[in-house]
Design a protein around this nucleic acid. Structure first.
Lengths: 344, 344
DNA sequence: TTGTACGCGTTATCAG
DNA sequence: CTGATAACGCGTACAA
């Protein structure tokens, strides 16, 4: 070989090997419109191939002022809600030749800000924040400030959540979905409802509870008993236990998300309650896990993967004057966990 | 303010604001051992805070020759096996102040190579390849070549899989685990086994099948019927259907991983077969999903999150002369899906 | 201890 | 269409 393996091979090496200038080599790869003579172009490619050249994207990032990586902030990648969305984002990113760097906030809004700052340092071209916004003006302000800083470096931000931030947002229709669900459950014959809610500060939870309440009110049914807990499987498990301990004559439970519902099922199972004979149960999201849960769980379906793709499309599209909002409908799915109620 | 918002604020801006030289500002942040006078140090930090400075990591990467991002290659982030490992990696990375960029190979070994090349371009400090190696010398050679190139840029590589590549590896004891499982199942009274295997080229599948075979042989039990399919839920579903169509008198099925087992359960359910009454079933991995599957599925537990952490520790530790192998034991977990068999 | 100056690998600008 | 050459933001010998 003409070059000894002294560190990584650079574009300069390729240029030398091809007998062209650095500039020409650069243009051969990413010159706007074919402005390089074909034979030279070929020579450059051949040289690159031979030397096993791989462009240093850090250097490109510096020269261009932007990377081709998009940052993805989720609460917990092991949660199927987030991992499905992540899969959607990654698939879309892949199609555009973008890289995805992932960070988990682990339920801590402060970490969300920290990580976003870190992504800013990386000069990510864009960031996708997924997960419910929380109440609290102080937190929100800190985040807004960081978003401004992020955008100041030329990056774009989008969220998948409630439209509380001045950025493009993919919004699941939590309220409307929960409302529809309530109506359908009433139509099935249920009358005494309970809701397993998440933390009160979580807006997604709040919206779903409210929507469910609305639906019941419209149907003229007694307001539900509400138990609050963590927005997780264990939260659902604990809340269901708490509910059962109280021992009121509930006939249908709505858990504000599927992971909670699934935890609630475990609680029932453990206490010898049989679903849906002894109690009906519904969730929200339609996470993939549900395919394998018994009895099949009624829920409000959100197109998780699509939402991820949508978010990436948004963040890669031309910036608009005012923040866009893409609403995503929830589809009520009635399954075995909420059969039509027979006259009691 | 003293600076107008002309693009991102650089270290230069901070230095100017603090009234020190660029070098001093740089050292204040990452000078090896306190070589900067305390008061200057404070001034620099104050200025950085005021200007909301965030170091441009692309520039740092160039100056240093390495990034603080580790690449993570998985088959599919929506698969709980991979998302649990990813969670472990990310948690560990977080503790070290590292960023994680994630890529999915989507079952295509060629994409694995492509993505690794892409990570090389990013000058990732390290890459973690998770997912079973496949048979095929050509693919392996291409991958080895790319690994060499990756390491040529100063990066480190580790795999979580079979130790086929000349890099540090976290190795689940597939064979021993499956062997133990077989022995325990025989001890429970089962005699006529079937195995739902993955693609024959997948080494993890191959090892597990072989281990299971070994166990049965040791116990003097007839060799199992083997059905091969995809290494996924749908693969398990299809394979189980195929098995049931054949209609031989199997009393216990071993699916080589949990997602396949879960697919197999769905197939049984759909055909009106009741587990474990009509058939016993066991899987491998102990993915989190299993918590919510009914009946509880017997399996061989792998400490997925720990494996992710282990991999990161390995890849961030001092490089050794010869590739290290960290073996991870599988723990047989007998649950409701494989009850002690009553005399038939 | 602090400051000056150079280099990292690319892109982009401006002459040829 | 091609080739010098100046940025890009930071780390770090080297000099003071």
């Amino acid at each position: 070989l003409s070059s000894s393996p002294t560190g990584p091979v650079t574009l300069m090496d390729v240029a030398r090997e091809a007998g062209v200038s650095l500039a020409t080599a650069s243009r051969a790869f990413n010159g706007s419109t074919r402005r390089v003579r074909e034979d030279l172009r070929q020579r450059v490619f051949a040289a690159a191939e031979k030397l096993d050249y791989s462009a240093n994207s850090a250097a490109q990032a510096m020269a261009r002022g932007r990377t081709n990586v998009v940052g993805l902030l989720v609460r917990d990648i092991a949660d199927p809600y987030f991992s499905s969305i992540a899969a959607g984002v990654m698939r879309a990113a892949d199609g555009r030749g973008l890289l995805v760097t992932l960070a988990s906030t682990l339920n801590d809004p402060a970490r969300e800000v920290e990580h976003l700052a870190s992504l800013r340092g990386q000069r990510c071209r864009s960031a996708i924040l997924v997960g419910s916004r929380v109440q609290g003006r102080a937190l929100e302000e800190r985040l807004e400030q960081e978003i401004t800083a992020f955008e100041g470096t030329g990056g774009r931000v989008v969220t998948i959540s409630q439209p509380r931030l001045p950025v493009d947002t993919v919004v699941p229709e939590n309220r409307a979905g929960a409302r529809s669900l309530a109506l359908e459950l009433v139509a099935l014959g249920y009358r005494r409802f309970a809701v397993l809610a998440g933390p009160t500060r979580l807006l997604a939870s709040k919206d779903r509870v409210q929507g469910f309440r609305d639906g019941l009110a419209v149907a003229g049914v007694t307001a539900p008993v509400v138990v609050s807990g963590e927005f997780s499987r264990d939260g659902g498990y604990d809340s269901m236990n708490e509910l059962l301990d109280r021992g009121n004559g509930i006939d249908c439970v709505f858990a504000v998300n599927d992971v909670m519902a699934v935890g609630a099922m475990a609680a029932c199972r453990q206490r010898g309650l049989e679903l849906p004979r002894d109690l009906a149960l519904a969730g929200f999201d339609d996470i993939v896990t549900l395919r394998d849960v018994n009895p099949a769980l009624s829920t409000v379906r959100l197109p998780l993967e699509d939402m991820g793709r949508l978010a990436l499309d948004l963040v890669e599209s031309e910036r608009q004057q005012t923040p866009r909002v893409v609403k995503v409908k929830g589809e009520v799915l009635l399954r075995a966990s909420t059969p039509r109620k027979v006259a009691s």
